Simulated assay, not measured.
Amino acid sequence: MFPKEQGYFFPAEWHPHVATWITFPHNDHSWQEDKLGQMYPEYFALIKAISEGELVRINVNSAALQAFVESQLPVYGIDPAKIEFNVQPTNDAWCRDHGPAFLVKEGSAERLVVNWEYNAWGGKYPPFSDDNALPSTIAKRLSLPSATPGIIMEGGSVDFNGAGTVLTSRSCLLNPNRNSHLSQEQIEDYLKNYYGVSQVLWVSDGIVGDDTDGHIDDTVRFVNTNTVIAMVEPNVEDENHAVLAANLAELKQMRLLDGSPLRIVEIPMPDAVVIDGFRAPGSYANFYICNAGVLVPIFDCPQDEIALGILRQLFNDRPVIGLSAREIIWGQGSFHCLTQQEPAPCV
Score class of each variant (00 low, 15 high):
G77L: 09
F44K: 05
I78N: 07
P345Y: 01
N175V: 03
Q340K: 15
Y118E: 01
K105H: 01
V87W: 10
K35Y: 12
H215K: 06
I207D: 00
S169T: 15
V320Y: 07
F9N: 01
S324M: 06
S204L: 10
A81Q: 14
K252I: 07
Y125P: 03
S169R: 01
C172K: 04
P281S: 03
P319A: 08
V296T: 10
P302S: 09
D238M: 02
A280Y: 04
V347Y: 05
C95F: 06
S51P: 02
Q340D: 04
F128K: 03
A245N: 13
P268L: 09
T137Y: 12
Q313T: 13
G37H: 13
L257A: 14
G107R: 09
V113K: 09
E5N: 12
L182T: 03
E266M: 02
E266R: 01
T225C: 00
D205M: 00
A133I: 08
L338K: 06
N61Q: 14
G196A: 08
N235I: 02
A272P: 03
G150W: 09
V320P: 09
D210M: 01
Q186D: 10
M153R: 12
I275Q: 07
C337R: 00
K35R: 14
P268G: 10
Y195L: 15
S157F: 01
G122L: 05
L308N: 03
F299K: 01
N175M: 05
E327V: 02
T168E: 11
D189C: 04
D205W: 04
V197C: 07
D189G: 02
P319M: 10
E327W: 05
P268M: 08
E84F: 03
I138M: 14
I152G: 04
C346K: 09
R178K: 11
L174A: 07
G123E: 11
I83M: 08
A139L: 06
F222M: 10
L173M: 15
T227D: 11
L142Q: 13
N119A: 05
A147T: 06
G277W: 07
V69D: 08
D130H: 15
N179R: 06
N59H: 12
D92I: 10
T225K: 14
N291Q: 08
R221H: 03
V166I: 12
G293M: 08
V273I: 12
S146Q: 15
L251W: 06
T227E: 10
P145V: 02
G277K: 06
R170P: 00
